[in-house]
Amino acid sequence: MKSAVSREASTPLDTTDSLTPTLRRKRKKGVAGYAFVSGYFVLLILFGVLPAAYAIVLAFTASGGHFTGLTNFIKTGEDFRFLPAFENVGKYLLIWLGSLVVIVLGLALMLHSIARRVSAAFRFIFYLPGALAGAASVLVWLFMLDPTVSPWRLFLGVFGFKNLGQTILPGHLPLIFAIIAFWAGAGGWIVVTYGALNNIPNELIEAAQLDGAGAIQTALRIKLPLIKKWIVFMLILAFAAGTQLFVEPQLVGEASLGLISPTWSPNELAYYFAFQDNNFNYAAAISVDLLVIGLLCAAVLVFRTKLFEVE
């Protein structure tokens, strides 16, 4: 607040304008804000809201276009592949979100407490795997997981895996996909969380240290509560992305010449309905299921943690 005031005072004012400087500034600020948001807003409408609305229309209609109520939801819910797909993704999310919170926060807190130069190098290293786009990172992992070509074949051998089929058994998949997701995505979140930690005023941390708080106590009692909203934000986005798991099971399935069910995740099941059974309405119903689940979880987190409240 202080800095804003001082900046305002130092700005040269245009005295020729009939509007008062404050009013003009306000109007300008407003226009600039809209201009900045407009690009995103247009894209959001085109590629976010409209497709979602189209999916909702499809989900409540039959292929002929007439309204069918909840039929599509009931029929897809009764399908033999529906529950297993949601179970698979549920297990994956538990591992992925759990490790995300614990390990990402742990690493970010650690980076924040070590020397700045070393921490920058570490942040860069953590972020690196994220530079590989989704499909490419899965391909890297296909080599890592195949004991016949993997640089980690000794390690895989310890578990008794002798071929790719043994590594990618159905029971191992949630963990494998969580590791891939973590490897590719955690670095970005470590950088974001580190940024959040940097926002904490130094005075607060110094005050805590003066009161006798050690590194761990400062981390748990001062830093964590202050970045709570960032953690919630991370969880909402990671949850939404996680429920949409598609590329990983699809590619691993193709690479193993079909040893994974083509409907492993709900998103794959929706894809199957749309393109194997040519039933876009069923596919839309599953997309809407995912949308509702994502919104509900986000709502719970937002309201429980008062994410949108401005102090």
Binding site: N163, G165, Q166, L169, P170, L257, G258, L259, I260, S261
Partner: peptide, 9 residues
């Protein structure tokens, strides 16, 4: 593939 072969594996 997704039942018998994975079972064997």
């Amino acid at each position: 593939g997704s039942t018998v072969v994975t079972g064997l594996n």
